[in-house]
Simulated scan of single mutants.
Amino acid sequence: MNVITLTRLELYEKIWSTPMTVLAKEFNLSDNGLRKICKKHNIPTPVMGHWQKIQYGKKTAVIKLPNKNLEEQIKINISQTKPSSEQDPKIDLVSESIKNNKNLVFKVSDRLSRPDIIVLDTQNYIKGIKADAYSRIKGTIETGRGMPSIIVTPKNIARSLRILDNLIKNFRVLNYKIVVKQDGLTIIANEDDEMKISIREICNSVMVDTDFKWKTRELIPNGKLAVKAGRFGTYEFVDSKKSLIENQIAKILIKIESDFLAMHEMRIRRRLEETKRKELEKIELEKQLTKEDELNKFRQFYNDAHRWKNYSILKEYYDFINTQPDKSSQTEQWLEWALQKLDWYNPLTNSKEEFLDDVDKDTLQFKKKTWF
């Protein structure tokens, strides 16, 4: 039985980092079911259109979490939620591949033997930490930044390290890249698809008396371990009466491998969609350029026609002056000048004129100059 246990803050962060439809599927819930849980625990949800705005790079408001410091535990029992209508056949293939991989070890050792360097560093780090009664979760030991995330009571330290060692060694067999970042242990597969892995002890939320004569809520560890995994740490494998974490290693690996496969397929789909989008944009751009080219040709045709009409009027006037019997020397000079300008203005000849090169023949205005 898989039980997801989250604080209000954790669920709030997931709600605002993952679309509701995607997160609901990870919890095996309907969208409405997840919204009801959020409403019950006073967790605000994104308004309609929030993720579309983010997709197109637009700004959108994020509603702050009321009573952020309220340490309320939220449990989601996967077995009691609405089951998926159909299981992806790829999951069956992943399950078969994992179970038939003879290099994988599904049994957690009773003692830590030849631990992975990451586990050895974590073990040495934990040796210098003592349980603190004033920590966020009383009586627990918590690893710091730059270490695999572990929050357990002292009696569960050895067990947590053995589980972590088994998982890391299996991750290496599956060719995952393993990195310890500031926020904990990260496994990377395919093309930089990432998942966070952490171990914590399940806590019960209880009301206790204080020295100030009022009650406060505290988180009390109950001894059960949980392995949290996922891109956003969205699901957990928890100790139960029927099955301890040590007996769920195969199930954990199948889930992680299936999710990595889903991420990879999503990446491929997005690439195909992006390629298709660019092809459509290219087609539209070429179509638009063709339209603009056609329009420019017609404009030139239109302008040439009007220039020809104006040219015909000018030529008619020129011929009239030229046919006058008593032309002065000044008139002869003008006729020579006018003939050059007619050749310059004629749309069929378009001869050049030194002093009129920067004039638009259609508007008879000087072209705008740029200094760049």
Rank of each mutant, 00 (worst) to 15 (best):
E274D: 14
I254G: 02
K68G: 02
V208P: 08
N170F: 00
E72R: 10
D358S: 14
K287G: 12
E13N: 13
N101Q: 13
F366S: 11
N67I: 03
V206C: 12
K315N: 13
E353Y: 07
L272F: 14
I202E: 06
E294S: 13
I268A: 01
L174A: 07
R35L: 04
T45H: 05
M263H: 10
D92L: 05
T370H: 15
D357C: 02
K58N: 11
L356I: 00
I76N: 00
K352Y: 01
E292G: 07
L65S: 09
F298P: 00
K127M: 14
K196Q: 10
W371Y: 13
I313M: 11
K241G: 15
K278F: 00
S160F: 03
K276H: 07
L289H: 03
N310S: 14
L244T: 15
P221A: 08
A338G: 09
P83K: 05
C203R: 03
L348D: 14
K213A: 07
Y125R: 13
M207T: 11
Q288G: 06
F106C: 14
I220L: 15
A131Y: 11
E257N: 10
I126C: 11
K369A: 12
N204Q: 13
E292F: 13
M48P: 00
D88K: 02
P148I: 01
S329I: 02
Y317A: 07
E13P: 04
T363Q: 04
Q123F: 14
